[in-house]
Design a protein around this nucleic acid. Structure first.
Length: 441
RNA sequence: GGAGAGAUGGCCGAGUGGUCGAAGGCGCACGCCUGGAAAGUGUGUAGGCGGGGAACCGUCUCGAGGGUUCGAAUCCCUCUCUCUCCGCCA
């Protein structure tokens, strides 16, 4: 969420940022609300000041048993009796108007984010000061096949243990039932990723709720604008949402707090199921388990100072890349252009894994730095170390590390054998009881 | 689901109609003490909004929202959450 004071001071920059993100928001309309708001506040404050001063005098008069004087003062205050409640109501209304307007505005892209309209304008990224040559050694090569590689759901093991028909009977479309070694392989992937991030990357493992309140969703920016993407369940008088990503509970872990600077950075990771209604995706990726209503994901969230968030973004990307490197999966990294970024992001890297069966790259991780955008919505601040300074908003980052279901697809497609079996990447074998291949005879 | 207790500053904890944004403690910051440190000691230390170049001033905030009152942390109503006991339950 934007700071109205910043918009007041930088209206041209704000308009430019909105235009580059394809938003029709402009500073003038917001500042008009702000002007009305400030006028109301000034008038209200003056009236309150007068009331408070007179009330204090009434207290003194009563203490001195001067009833006549007290009565005179009380009748004077009575003239404010209508104005103050009305002014308070006006203030509440205009504050809400401003907050509602600000809450619907997407974050501003960082200066080095490429300008563009959609995913065709995204730009490949090779690391800080990187080139294709410097990035290549870290990235596993594409596998070579002596046969035509199949899509994941056509591979022998999947035809046996990846059951969309029974899932449809249970739950409808966009659900899957995994069985046997495929079920175990997905579990192994989640365990492997969690162990990697907790043991080597310094993340704290968290088991959060997967049902959350509207407030938490507002904090990370899913509400109020993206209600249609969520599943809700009734609860008491209200409702709870199933999380679309563990970003929601992990980031909200610091909501409404003032941290000490020494506590930063905070790094959280969680393996959870995620739930998305995919309302706008009818007809897209309907075959296979690429786009499901329910999927598992290992999420990474960092809470940092403003000074450190850019560095943390690169670090988090590297943490996510390590997953694919250890699994021997070929991938590329894209910097999302201004038009393709999510609502709360200032800059986003997508990691796209190579899927030989589809003969294309598909997103398997998205790593975003949000600046103080979410922190403002959550009221998450920290107190700078040293000399007395006011609290500042923290910066928040989130990234997938990685999507487990899509990673399963990638393993199947990249390690498939002509006979329908699939080799188990070395890094996963300890999690598979030493098994080197699944689906073989 | 039933009964009861509670929610106060970064943290703990006093405070039942006026001078209370709020005692005391912890923590933190600065100073003194010290060869240096610890201990001790002194001072300071909430946040939001508005006005102002600034110093500063005003206002709001004691879980949230309404209400009573000239005046509310304190009284009333509604809600949320936490704790204890009972019931149910993986």
């Amino acid at each position: 969420m934007f700071d109205i004071k910043w918009i007041r001071d930088n209206p041209a920059a704000f308009d430019k940022a909105m235009e580059s993100r394809g938003s029709s928001q402009r500073a003038a309309a917001l500042l008009d609300i702000d002007d009305r708001r400030r006028t109301i506040i000034v008038r209200l404050n003056e009236a309150q000041e007068k009331r408070n001063a007179l009330s204090k005098q009434i207290g003194q008069a009563k203490a001195q048993k001067d009833e006549a004087k007290a009565q005179a003062l009380m009748s004077e205050v009575a003239t404010l009796k209508d104005f103050i409640p009305a002014g308070e109501a006006d203030e509440r209304a205009v504050e809400k108007e401003l907050r509602d307007a600000l809450a619907a505005i997407p974050n501003m892209a960082l200066d080095d984010v490429p300008f563009g309209e959609d995913e065709s304008d995204n730009v490949e990224y090779f690391g800080p000061n990187g080139t294709p040559e410097t990035a290549a050694p870290r990235r596993p090569p594409r596998p070579a096949f002596g046969f035509a590689p199949k899509e994941h759901f056509e591979i022998g093991v999947a035809e046996k243990d990846m059951d969309f028909e029974i899932a449809a009977k249970l739950s409808g479309s966009r659900f899957v039932v995994l069985k046997g070694q495929l079920a175990r392989l997905e579990r192994a992937l989640g365990q492997f990723m969690l162990d990697l991030h907790t043991q080597e990357h310094g993340y704290l493992e968290v088991r959060p709720p997967v049902l959350v309140r509207d407030d938490a969703l507002f904090g990370t920016g899913q509400l109020p604008k993206f209600e249609d993407d969520l599943f809700f369940t009734p609860h008491g008088e209200g409702r709870l949402a199933l999380i679309p990503t563990a970003e929601v509970p992990l980031t909200n872990l610091v909501r409404e707090t003032i941290l000490t600077e020494e506590a930063l950075p905070l790094r959280f990771t969680a393996l959870t199921s995620c739930f998305r209604s995919e309302a706008g995706s009818a007809g897209r990726d309907t075959r296979g388990m690429l786009r499901q209503h329910q999927f598992d994901k290992v999420e990474l969230v960092s809470i940092t100072t403003p000074e450190e968030s850019i560095n943390e973004h690169e670090r988090m990307l590297a943490c996510a890349e390590t997953v694919l490197q250890r699994l021997g999966l070929h991938y590329r990294v894209m910097t999302l252009c201004t038009g393709d970024m999510g609502f709360g992001a200032r800059k986003t890297y997508d990691i796209e894994v190579w899927l030989p069966g589809q003969d294309t790259y598909r997103e398997i991780s998205s790593v975003s730095v949000c600046g103080d955008f979410q922190a403002r919505r959550m009221e998450a601040r920290y107190r700078p170390a040293g000399e007395k300074q006011p609290p500042r908003y923290v910066h928040t980052l989130n990234g997938s590390g990685t999507a487990v279901g899509r990673c399963l697809i990638a393993v199947l497609e990249n390690y498939q054998q002509e006979d329908g079996s699939v080799l188990v990447p070395e890094a996963l074998q300890p999690y598979m009881g030493g098994l080197g291949v699944i689906g073989g005879r």
